[in-house]
Design a protein around this nucleic acid. Structure first.
Lengths: 213, 213, 213, 213
DNA sequence: GATGAATGAGGATTCATTCAT
DNA sequence: AATGAATGAATCCTCATTCAT
């Protein structure tokens, strides 16, 4: 009876809370906020709907918590790498890190897509803190390189472009699977995709040197 | 009663039917299938929910019709341009045409995203007929160019990459608007994005020559 | 099939709507707003809860409609009688009319009590239009009679006093029934109560003469 | 832990229990039994709903306790004063005492009204012990005075009438406040109301004398 | 004595859909 | 082609209550 000990991790969340977040993440990613029922979430977490409300005030609050828990680490991954000398290598690292993070959180990208497609109220705050600095920094770097292939005001387009390329791959995995008959998120395919993106990045960066010469 | 003349164009669809499709497209794009209520659609079309069922057998049928009507012309746009000599120019044209089509159907991209994120049952058939041939053709062209920067099996990645870049820009317009404070779908910004994509495509294509030398 | 004719009385409300109002009036009077379930109302009206919402937007809206339908005629009854020469007789008539109206709407008084006890949001507007003029008029009459037993500023107390006496009798009928073992709303008892109130009113009015002497 | 000293007065009730009764009284008076949630009561008492059940077996039990605690002293106040020689003065005293008691227990009247409007199961026992003797006594006194204005069988009507007048004033205070813009329970207004009731009582009692002569 | 977590039952309301008119 | 009314099923959420800690 007493062997089980306390079920709550005093740190931040009880195991139940975490379990709910896990299953909700998967379901919200699959079907979106509106398409996911509280009953469904509760059942997947081996709970009554009523019990779920002991941990989250509302479906929306749960959704926000899922987004928060998923996106914040991603932003931290991104924010950790930016300042380096050699842009190309640094960028390669960032791509790799982001790809790795998304790979180990298979629902994150679709979650982000869902949020992004409509106004993204739950995401807004987070993203502003994330994308805006990124763009400003990118602008600085583009300028520093005195690139004449890419102009300063194309920096935002490049950032969002990379966003589409990276997040898109994960978000659309179900459909790519349909089409190609193989899992785009398998280690092999992920490596291939990462390699592809690195080649592309090198193309975009190194080109300047060849132009400069 | 009869003074208004016939309201139905037997050819393709009644004006009411078309009106329903219009508002449903906008709503489905905004909130997805699950997030959009029949009542909402009906109200936006100045109808009773009951009346709506005189035109579509079910919400799902309406949704499918919206997808159909939106995606088929896009596929035709794409299918129309593929065979040319100079790959670079042809590709530029395709990009332009697709961008133009998406620009004039502002809900299409988000609709596609919604469908793509989950299994995309309503889209599956259409997309298979669309993307698979594209990829096969791309593979042929990559091979023909004897590019040694891009390998044959990277062709699918390039295709999907372009998909992400083009469709993503439109689908995520609401969020980009949030972040940058300007409409990504304004003529000026669309032109800029198109120019950007063309520069990128040139980079990806022309690079081979510089490497060859 | 067609013999039943149209089910809606074009005038104001369909028969169904009226039926709902009837049963809701009884239930709200018995158990109050919070104590009455929509399911209960619907069942009593031979309807599904869902169907009920075709007629009233919400439980609260239904409640308001019940109050409105019940109280408005009462106010009209009161407003119709006020101007006469002989105050005593006029007052007798008013008492009689109000008693009669409440007698034929057996739930009205309890409904009013329910509303009055808490802030009476649904009643507020109606009552202000009703009680305030009454008081002003009463003040005029008290003053006109140059009564020296009742002072001018006691007019409001008299009004509310009569309110308590008349409405209270009906509202507390269930408990009086409990205590006395006979129905306070039976014709015989109602008559007795009316007679009692008239005697009381005469006492309050006529007394002035005896005092004057 | 033990520094605060014993928190329970073994005699009658713990302070917590009393606190719960206090807030519950206010809430039940405002919204009735059905309209008041256990959560609400607990929150107002700075407790968890679960903790509340350490003090009361159920919501109903709490409600009954509130009624008990509120009504019993009132009955005692009434029961204490009845036997005197001069009816008029005795009655004046009773009115004053009851008004005073209700004034110092501002929720009591509304509580009684709530209970009275429906069957009043929780009140039944108490009230029977209270009102029935009162009526019998009143009947005796009416008879003793050989009043020919009020007949014997009007005694119950007088009792309930006084009940309406006294309790009504307190129970409907919220609405009267709405209408007149001043607090009917302020010392000044209470005094005025008491004076008014005394004048009325004298009218009802003394009249007999004038008729006798 | 207090509480976090759990729950079955029920709360009001909305769902997509049907059908007679 | 349009609609008011009806409905079974589902929606999110709250209810009063229990119990191990």
């Amino acid at each position: 009876m007493t062997l089980t000990g306390p079920t709550t991790t005093t740190a931040e969340g009880s195991v139940t809370r975490e379990r709910i977040l896990d299953v909700a993440e998967a379901l919200f990613a699959q079907r979106g906020l509106a398409g996911t029922g509280v009953r469904e979430i509760a059942r997947s977490a081996d709970l009554t709907p009523a019990s779920l409300y002991n941990h989250f005030a509302s479906k929306q609050a749960l959704y926000d918590a899922v987004i928060e828990r998923g996106v914040r680490p991603l932003l931290e991954v991104i924010g950790r790498l930016p300042s380096r000398e050699h842009t190309a290598e640094a960028f390669d690292d960032t791509i790799g890190a982001v790809m790795a993070h998304l790979a180990s959180h298979p629902h994150l990208a679709r979650l982000i897509h869902h949020e992004t497609i409509n106004g993204g109220d739950s995401l807004k705050g987070l993203v502003e803190h994330w994308i805006r600095p990124l763009i400003e920094q990118a602008q600085v770097e583009v300028r520093r390189d005195q690139s004449d292939y890419w102009s300063d005001d194309e920096a935002p387009l490049m950032i969002t472009g990379w966003f589409h390329l990276v997040v898109g791959h994960f978000a659309m995995a179900p459909m790519l699977q349909e089409i190609f008959g193989e899992d785009p998120l398998s280690p092999h395919n992920l490596e291939r995709q990462t390699r592809f993106l690195r080649k592309l990045s090198r193309l975009m960066m190194q080109d300047r040197e060849s132009k400069d010469s």
